[in-house]
Structures are given as C-alpha cells and as structure tokens.
C-alpha cells in the first residue's frame, strides 16, 4: 500500500518537475549547468550535508520525540481552539468534492513539487547563493519547527472537531494516511511545517522574481493553496498557519544572513595547508565544524575553481530528500 502511494507520488512529481524545467528553466541554463555542475555541487555540498544530517536526526528522534513531548506536556490544543473559535468550520462550509480533490492533490503532490522544483531551478543558476539560501532555509525550518514540536503538544482540528466529516483528507483518500504517517505525528501541528516550507519557497521566489518571474507567480499560487489546504482538510488551525508563515520569514531572513558568512571550502583548504585532516573526516567535519569556523572571506560570488578530481560526495550531497517534509 505504501509503496504504491509512494510510486505514484514519485511519478507525478517527476512529471511536474520535467514540465516545469522546460517552462521555467530553459535550454540555455541547462547548457550552462552541464558545464558547471561540479562547481555548483561543491558549493552547495556543505549545506546539503547539513540538511541531510538534520533529516536523518529527525527520523531517529521522531521515535522519542512524542514521549518527551508528553513529559514536557505543553498541550496547546485547547488554547488554540479557544482563541480561534470555529474558523475552520467556516472554511469547511465551502466543502465540495471538487474542492476537496483539488486541495488533497495540492496537499500531497503540489507540496512535494513546490519543495523539489526550486532546488533544481536554483541549481540551474550560475550563482549558487539562491540554492544555498534555499537549502539553509529548509534546514532552519526543520531545526526550529521540530524543536517546537518537542515542546508543544497540540492536536489539529480534525482531532478536535468531530463534525468535520466530509472533507477530511484521510477519510476521502485513506491511502494518504500511510504516507503522511511515515513523516508526521498527529500532535505536531504547531507550527504548520507544510505552510512554513511552502512560504519559504514563496519568499525566496519573490527574491528571485527577476530571474524566474513566472515561477514566482506559480510558487505564490501553490504556496497560498497549500496554506489553505492544511486548514480546509482539517489538519491545521489558522494559528498554526500564521505561525508557519512567521517561521518561514525568520528562516529566510536568517538564511540570508548566514549564507556566505562561512566558507566550508576555504576551511577545508586551510586544513589542507596545515595537512592534519584526512579525507574520511570531511563528512562529520561538515556538521560539527561548519558553524564554528570563524568568518573568512565572503563567498557570495560563486566559486570558479575547477579541480580535476571529482568528489564522490556529489551524489549524496545533491539529494536533500525534500519529500520527507
């Protein structure tokens, strides 16, 4: 059951990505990418490794997180419900099968596409800064969002308002529960990571609107739809969505400040000079040493050195596994 749903997801999102590459990225950027991909991967590798490490940590910590949450026990369900009233019920009063189908599609497929495509679109740019900012912002979203999940226990509208019967995702499309159960806990609703990651892409798309004007429009449409879908499907409260947008803003702003502040490449180079490090340590060094390294020369321009030896880490580093979101 799970594999079937997963396969379907991969196929649909791949199709969407291929079409989008043709529409938004274009032939010339692809041609440049073929020439420069090594350098670009090298530039994005440290933050990709960091993101991968965070996702890996998350998948391990997810088993223990709920227990810790119940011990700390900040149950926000009632305060949220009390403040927000019955906004979700109002939203659901527009319920219609076609709308439910649209938002269910957006919630699953649109969301994964929205997270995957900008990685490719920004990879196709000679300037790697947008890509690194995107991956940094993703990482920050996870770290901050999952941090909040540890402290805050809250159930979404579907668990609080039993009268939401008709438009619930898992009742209309039960197969998706197998998918989302792999990555979500039902007490992790504040803030909405669906919203925050979508809004992150939106904010960055706004920043790169000069380069990808049409993508900015699509990202905005998708992002707004995703935010609404989380509420319409009874998964999140309006307050979760608001908090998600705030979290996204913080992450994008932080990413802007952080990216380019430290250069991992320069740090490795300095280590090579003193010749104390072995190659095997690079991966762990990326996580532990990366933030601690003192600020060195700015790397806001893309790296242009082209070393002849190809790096094996390029394969793992380029896959940020965004579908785990």
């Amino acid at each position: 059951m799970l594999t079937q749903v997963l396969l379907q997801l991969v196929v649909v999102v791949t199709l969407m990505v291929l079409v989008s590459i043709a529409v938004f990225v274009g032939r010339y950027r692809l041609r440049d990418t073929r020439l420069e991909w090594r350098a670009r991967i090298r530039a994005a590798a440290p933050v990709s490794a960091l993101l991968a490490a965070v996702l890996l940590f998350n998948s391990v910590a997810r088993q223990y997180g709920p227990d810790v949450s119940w011990i700390i026990h900040w149950n926000l369900t009632w305060p949220i419900y009390d403040v927000e009233g019955e906004f979700i019920l109002w939203l659901q009063s527009f319920e219609a099968p076609a709308i439910t189908a649209y938002f269910s599609f957006i919630y699953i497929y649109g969301y994964v596409f929205l997270l995957v495509f900008p990685v490719i679109a920004y990879f196709a740019l000679s300037n790697t800064r947008p890509l690194r900012e995107l991956l940094t912002a993703y990482t920050l979203n996870y770290v901050l969002g999952l941090g909040l999940y540890v402290f805050i226990v809250a159930y979404g509208p579907r668990n609080m308002m039993p009268e939401l019967v008709d438009a619930l995702l898992y009742d209309t499309y039960p197969q998706y529960q197998h998918l989302t159960r792999q990555v979500n806990r039902n007490t992790n609703v504040f803030p909405s990571l669906h919203t925050s990651l979508a809004a992150t892409v939106m904010f960055l798309a706004f920043r790169t609107r000069a380069i990808y004007p049409k993508w900015f429009l699509l990202a905005t449409g998708l992002g707004v739809s995703i935010a609404i879908s989380t509420m319409y499907l009874g998964i999140h409260w309006a307050i979760d969505v608001a908090a998600g947008i705030v979290l996204a803003y913080i992450c994008v702003a932080l990413a802007h400040v952080l990216v380019g502040r430290w250069s991992f490449t320069a740090w490795v180079a300095s280590l090579r000079d003193s010749s104390t490090s072995t190659g095997a340590d690079t991966n762990t060094g990326a996580n532990a040493g990366f933030p601690k390294t003192p600020p060195s020369e700015s790397t806001s321009k893309s790296h242009s050195h082209s070393d002849s030896d190809s790096e094996p880490e390029s394969e793992t580093g380029s896959d940020p596994e965004p579908e785990r979101a």
Partner: peptide
Amino acid sequence: RRSLLAAGATGLSIAASGCIDR
C-alpha cells in the same frame, strides 16, 4: 501555564475575534 500560552497564542493571531475578551 495554559493561560500564559493562550496569551502567547493570542498575540499570534490578533485578527481572531474574542481575544480582547479573553
């Protein structure tokens, strides 16, 4: 703690009605 958090949550959504009463 709950009322404290409620106050915090209130701050997040000023638009929501009824928060002043609370």
